[in-house]
């Protein structure tokens, strides 16, 4: 699959090491995608990396990708400026399955940069707010400074039809909000066993979060998590992303906890 050239039409520095890029295809084509899917982004002469889409799929605007500088490719991507071009292959993988959640409550739990693929969901839910019941959003971050999408999170907080909880692992002077790991917030959120939970963050955080949600009475089949593995081809042919019989690139990245729990229970699977 050959990439399509995309131009950076917007760029926002989210935190010290996170940048959101707004992209438009140079040939004018439009990507159709669902919240939770990812693209392979290519930086010239450096390489490709899998990055989830962070924009509202119904928004009609540019595609957004929120990139954290953790390696050579992501560093090159974070350095791109408005007007620069990159390559994009996609969209790939499973999505959050928002349609199947319509009519019910949502519990959205994000940890760190895991907020990016969930921002795609949250913005879509806001656009179609009456399709869903109560919406609880729990966002965990390391420090207040490392919260991405700050202005947007503030605008979500201001809405009466969303319940937003931001918690930090380490407060800095002046922080008047909640301090504590995300799981300590879960006992306080509205969490109907019939709700759908969408969880994204580091693997350990997702494991503890799924456990905490199950303690709240949610069945594993209603908890959806988004997995990270080494991805190169994104089309189930390079083998890198395998987890047991699963290809995370094609069968995932979004899985039910019911599917994932037994796989993650085996160390180094």
């Amino acid at each position: 699959m050959t990439p399509v050239s995309h131009r950076v039409v917007g760029r926002r520095v989210e935190t010290a090491d996170v940048v959101t890029l707004q992209l438009e295809a140079t040939d004018g084509s439009r990507l159709r995608y669902a919240a939770g899917q990812f693209n392979m982004l290519y930086a010239y002469a450096v390489g490709e990396v899998a990055i989830s889409i962070s924009a509202n799929p119904l928004g009609g605007g540019p595609i957004a990708h929120t990139v954290r500088n953790v390696g050579s490719v992501s560093r090159a991507l974070c350095g791109l400026q408005i007007g620069d071009t990159l390559g994009l292959r996609g969209p790939f993988g499973s999505d959050w399955g928002l349609d199947s959640a319509a009519g019910g409550d949502l519990v959205i739990v994000a940890g760190g940069i895991g907020l990016a693929p969930l921002r795609s969901v949250i913005t879509q839910v806001i656009a179609e707010r009456d399709r869903f019941g109560t919406v609880e959003i729990v966002i965990g971050t390391r420090t207040p400074e490392e919260l991405a999408f700050k202005a947007e999170v503030e605008s979500w907080r201001a809405r009466s039809d969303l319940s937003v909880h931001v918690t930090v692992d380490r407060a800095t002077p002046g922080w008047r909000g909640t301090v504590g790991v995300v799981t300590t917030v879960l006992p306080r959120v509205h969490c109907d066993p019939a709700a759908i939970a969408l969880v994204c963050g580091p693997e350990v955080m997702m494991r503890f979060t799924a456990l905490a949600l199950m303690e709240r009475g949610m069945p594993a089949s209603r908890i959806r998590v988004s997995m990270e593995r080494n991805m190169q081809c994104a089309i189930a042919q390079c083998g890198h992303c395998q987890l047991g019989s699963v290809f995370v690139c094609a069968d995932g990245p979004v899985f039910t906890w019911e599917r994932l729990e037994p796989l993650l229970a085996v160390r180094q699977l």
């Binding site: 390489g47 190169q232 042919q237 890198h240």
Partner: peptide, 8 residues
């Protein structure tokens, strides 16, 4: 065996 790396 079919595994591969994509390299630049």
């Amino acid at each position: 065996c079919f595994c591969s790396d994509d390299v630049e």
